[in-house]
């Protein structure tokens, strides 16, 4: 598999580029929208939530940005990427290329977007007076975990979507639910103790808390949790790849 992917690396590169540039093609702000969009979401929550929650975090906007930007990476990968095989049906019917390239390029373009938006995070962290710490060096580890997890999930969802087109909508629903079951708008200690098992089962809790630790609390992330999430993500990736490989054989006939 890796040999084939390496051979087709140019295709991977061009499709990542197409993914980043093509998405907002024709709009006035173009690529800038990929950063303006999440910031506008942050704005909405930053206005609304202090009214609902009595005691929000200090530097709530920064707190939100650190959580929402990686979440945007997740939603663009999963909600936006589930249809990636179906949308490329035309080319899948006509030429052979390793089909994995499509989901991989979706998650990778999301990663690049997120890396660029990390500049925004750093700007906010600096200007809100929180400042940077050496723990930022843990960023690549969390990035890898999130990448692996998302790629595994996307392998599954995009290949199932070819056979059952409802997958897209069902997955959107779960992504929305998961948003509230992940400590993005709130910190995990605000979550009702009775239901804290939901947060503990959610792998994104550890991921978001990891980002928070290195950017916001300036502490060492919970490495033990991250390690378990990493193991889980690798398993998801392996299963996802197996599912993808199995279903891939019917892509050209079903799309």
């Amino acid at each position: 598999m890796l040999k084939d992917l390496y051979k087709y690396r140019e295709l991977l590169k061009t499709s990542v580029k197409k993914e980043i540039r093509g998405k907002y093609k024709g709009s006035f702000l173009g690529v800038l929208w990929s950063f303006v969009n999440p910031l506008l979401t942050v704005l909405v929550y930053a206005i609304v939530f202090p009214f609902v929650l009595k005691n929000t975090q200090p530097h709530y906007v920064t707190f939100l940005i650190i959580g929402i930007l990686p979440w945007t990476w997740f939603t663009t990968s999963i909600s936006g990427g589930t249809a990636c095989i179906v949308n490329n049906g035309g080319i899948i019917k006509k030429v052979y290329f390793p089909r994995e390239i499509l989901p991989i390029s979706i998650v990778t373009s999301g990663l690049i977007n997120y890396l660029i938006s990390c500049i925004i995070i750093i700007i906010f962290v600096l200007f809100s007076g929180i400042g940077l710490s050496k723990y930022i060096l843990f960023l690549p580890i969390i990035l890898i975990i999130q990448f692996v997890l998302q790629l595994g999930l996307l392998f599954i969802s995009s290949s199932i979507d070819v056979y059952i087109r409802d997958a897209e909508y069902i997955i959107n629903f779960f992504v929305n639910m998961l948003f509230y079951a992940t400590p993005i708008l709130y910190s995990s200690d605000l979550f009702p103790k009775k239901f804290s098992w939901i947060l503990n089962l959610n792998p994104f809790t550890s991921i978001i808390n990891g980002y928070r630790a290195i950017f916001y609390y300036k502490t060492l992330p919970n490495l033990e949790n991250l390690f378990f999430v990493f193991l889980f993500s690798v398993i998801v990736l392996l299963i996802g790849y197996a599912v993808f490989k199995k279903l891939e054989k019917g892509f050209a006939e079903e799309v």
Partner: peptide
């Protein structure tokens, strides 16, 4: 040409 050749599995140098 670059897109299409990439679909055929060529690298940038080869193209």
């Amino acid at each position: 040409i670059y897109f299409n050749a990439a679909v055929f599995g060529l690298t940038k140098k080869e193209i």
